[in-house]
Structure formats: C-alpha cells, structure tokens
C-alpha cells in the first residue's frame, strides 16, 4: 500500500473516531487519535489476517492493552472488513458489543482490556507457546507510556527477554501524556529506550505519525530478541485543540467541537 493510501485511510478513520466519540458521548478520543496511524499501517500492511474469517488459525495476533483507545481499533477493524458500519455505529450504545473499552466480543479483537498492564503478559503467553510450537505467527501488543507504571509489564518484559521471544513485538505509544497529566510529572520514564536496552531487547524509537517510519519499524526482523518500538506520538493528533491536552483523555466532543474537528481533519 502506498503512503498516500495510508494517509487517506487514517484520515477517514479519524473522522469516524471523532464522530463516534461525539455521538456516544464517550471519552478517550485523544488516546485513539494518538494510535490511528500505527494501527492503519499495522492492519493494512503488516498483519497476516483474514477479516472474513477473524478466527483464522494461523493469523497474526494484535492485542490492544490500552483498551481505552478502542475507538481506533474498532474503526480500523471496520475499515479492514471485520464487520459493517451498522455494527460500528452501535459503539457505546445499550446492548452493543462495542463497549468503550476494547471487547473481545467484537470480531477481530483477541482480548478485552481496560485495566492497564494486562495485554503484555497475555501476548507473552501467546508468543511463548507459538515459539515452542515453531509456528511462524507474529504477535503485536500496543501499550501506552503511562501504562508502563504497571509492574505486570515489567514482569512480562523480563520473561520475554529471558526466553528470547523474537515473535513478540511490543509497541509503545509514547505521547507523554497520562491520565492526570504529563508522564514526566507523574512517573518520569526518563530515557525509555535505555530501560529496554538493559533487558537486551531490540529497541527502536520512531515517529508514530510517519507512515514510512512506522512501516519500517514494524517490518524489521530480529533474531532471538523481542522487538520494542517506541512510537513518538501526539495525543489527539490531527485535531489542534485536542493535541497534547489532558482534557481530551476524558472529554467527549460537543457538536461544536465535533464540527470544528471535522473541518480540521478534512
């Protein structure tokens, strides 16, 4: 897929995300906009999946550990063909399978999350057993920088390092914002890249909104090492008044804000 196509798809996904956040009065739109570009490249160029057969046996696995950014994954799954727009439009409504934290009741979703620090241990289990079975599938797990406060991640990282899980790809959405403010004011992650290097992992840092860089980092291979990609991102990316604002971890757009956002994205 060309860079132009990535740009076109992610633009459409941003529009749908903002629209659904407005219509469902749901929060976390900033977190979803932060990862749209990464998920676009991942789903349309990297993952071996069959949208019409979501449980296809030899599929690659993607786990969204920062489950509050589910709008991004739901919209990309819809766009990839896992389900139709009618289903997507039920987002957040009573009796909908599309809860406002990612739900495995939705086709294409491997694990329901919402409480942070759960995705990586789960993904590590899948990676370990597939390595033992010598299966060639790839496992991707996306976690946020704030989520790294959770100790369970570091338990899993030690394990992945020890067992040299080269089929495991840890993607970090480093937008430098967490629930109550900037990460460096809450728990300073310092030089995150060095932390992972200490565990002897294959680490790279790249712009999480540059499609060429995203693609290159997601497709890189590494023998005997778990790969960690630290994506430098902007929370609320694409809508100027949402960018890098803690408020947009919580707020759902009003009609006015929704209209303004659409104008900017289009």
């Amino acid at each position: 897929m060309s860079l132009k196509n990535f740009k076109s798809i992610s633009k459409k996904l941003r529009i749908i995300c903002v629209e659904l956040a407005y219509k469902s009065s749901s929060s976390h739109i900033g977190s979803s906009l932060s990862i749209i570009d990464i998920l676009t490249v991942l789903y349309f160029e990297v993952l071996n999946i069959k949208p019409k057969n979501p449980n296809y046996k030899n599929r690659d696995k993607f786990i969204l550990s920062k489950g509050h950014a589910c709008l991004a994954q739901y919209t990309v799954l819809y766009k990839a063909g896992f389900f139709d727009k009618k289903m997507l439009d039920t987002f957040g409504k009573n009796n909908s399978k599309l809860m406002t934290h990612i739900s495995s009741e939705v086709p294409g979703v491997e694990l329901s999350t919402g409480s942070l620090g759960h995705g990586l241990p789960f993904a590590t289990g899948i990676a370990y057993i597939n390595k033992i079975l010598k299966k060639k599938i790839k496992i991707f797990v996306l976690i946020s920088d704030g989520e790294l406060n959770e100790g369970s991640n570091w338990e899993a990282i030690q394990f992945a390092s020890h067992h040299k899980l080269s089929n495991l790809n840890i993607l970090i959405d480093q937008n430098n914002e967490q629930s109550l403010g900037p990460t460096n004011k809450i728990i300073n992650l310092e030089k995150l890249i060095d932390k992972f290097k200490c565990y002897n992992l294959d680490v790279c840092e790249t712009d999480g909104h540059n499609y060429t860089n995203i693609l290159k980092s997601l497709k890189r291979t590494s023998n005997n090492k778990t790969k960690v990609t630290i994506f430098k991102t902007i929370k609320g990316k694409g809508v100027s008044f949402m960018e890098n604002k803690t408020l947009w971890h919580y707020k759902s757009p009003s009609y006015y804000e929704y209209s303004l956002a659409l104008k900017e994205i289009i």
Partner: peptide, 22 residues
C-alpha cells in the same frame, strides 16, 4: 514453565497460552 516470582505475569501468560488451545 517456571515463570519466576511473578504471579501477575503467570496468570496473564497462562490466559495467553490457554487462548491457544491449552
């Protein structure tokens, strides 16, 4: 597997392995 002294990882990892049919 001995996952070490790391019970949160043990339980999450177990769920991952179980999701693969174990």
């Amino acid at each position: 597997l001995n996952v070490g002294v790391a019970e949160q990882n043990m339980a999450g990892l177990a769920a991952g392995i179980a999701s693969e049919g174990y």
